[in-house]
Design a protein around this nucleic acid. Sequence first.
DNA 1: TCATCGTATCATCAAACAATGATACGATGA
DNA 2: TCATCGTATCATTGTTTGATGATACGATGA
Lengths: 128, 128
Amino acid sequence: MGSKKTYHLQAKLFRGFSDESRLVILEALRQGPLAVGRIVEITGLSQSNTSNHLRCLSECGLVSAEQRGRFVYYHLGDARIEAMLRLADELLADVGRRIYECTNYRGATGANAATSGPPKQHQRRRRQ
Amino acid sequence: MGSKKTYHLQAKLFRGFSDESRLVILEALRQGPLAVGRIVEITGLSQSNTSNHLRCLSECGLVSAEQRGRFVYYHLGDARIEAMLRLADELLADVGRRIYECTNYRGATGANAATSGPPKQHQRRRRQ
DNA sequence: TCATCGTATCATCAAACAATGATACGATGA
DNA sequence: TCATCGTATCATTGTTTGATGATACGATGA
C-alpha cells in the first residue's frame, strides 16, 4: 500500500455525498436517528427512492440502521461524516459562486443540435 | 438563505471529488503545480480527457490555472481541498472494506437480462 | 391466522456523464 | 510568416445511475 492509492474507493466514498437527495437525507440525520417513513416525509422523496439511497449510504458506511419494532431507524455512521459536511459548507462559503457557474458536463447535451441550424465548425469559446 | 441549504451546490462540489480520474489528478497536484502535459504523463489519461477534467475542476474552484509560456500550470485551489482528501483517507481507513463491498447501483444493468432465462418474479434478496 | 403497516427489492427508463477522436486555437521559435 | 508544440473545445458514444411504479417481505396487532 501507499504507492497505489485506493482512488476507486475514494471515488465511491465521495459519490455517496455527491447526490442532492442523499445530502438531504444526511442533513436530516444530523439531528438524530430517524425512521424511514419520517425521512420520506422530510425529504419529499418517494419511499422506494429513499430506501434505495439509504441502502447505498448504509452499504458505504455513511449511515447505520437499527430495527425497532416495525420501524428501521437510521443514523449517521461516523462523526467524520459530519466533519465532511461541515468542511464542504466552509468551502462553499468561498467557492460557492464559482461552483454555481460550473456548467461543465451540464446541459450541453442535445440542446445544441436543436437550436443551432448550421453545423458550425468548432466555434471555440475564448480562453478564460 | 439559511433555511434552505444549498444541497445542489454541495452535491456539485462532492461530484468534483467523486471521479477516479479527477482524484488522481488532485493527488498529483498535492505535490505542487503541474503543467497539463505532465499530468497526462502521470495519470495516463488522454490529453483531451485530462483537459476536460481540469476544466471541470477549475470551474468548480478545486484547482487554479496559471499560464507560463506555452504551458498552463495547475495547482490546488484551496488548502481545504487537501483537508477533504485527508479526511476521506481517514474515513476509508475505517469503512473502506464496507465501501469495497458496496455494489449498489453497480453492475446490475443488463447483466440480468442476458444471463437469466425465465423472467423471475421479484426474487427478493434476504434482508441483511 | 389474517389484515395492515413499514420497509426493501426489482425492472425499466431517461438523463447525466466520462471517454474518445478529431480538430481548433494560442504561444513560441525558426 | 510559418511550422510546431501545448492545450482547449467539439461531437459522439457507451456506460452509469437516479427516479418511478409495482411488488415482495417482515413485524405487529386484531
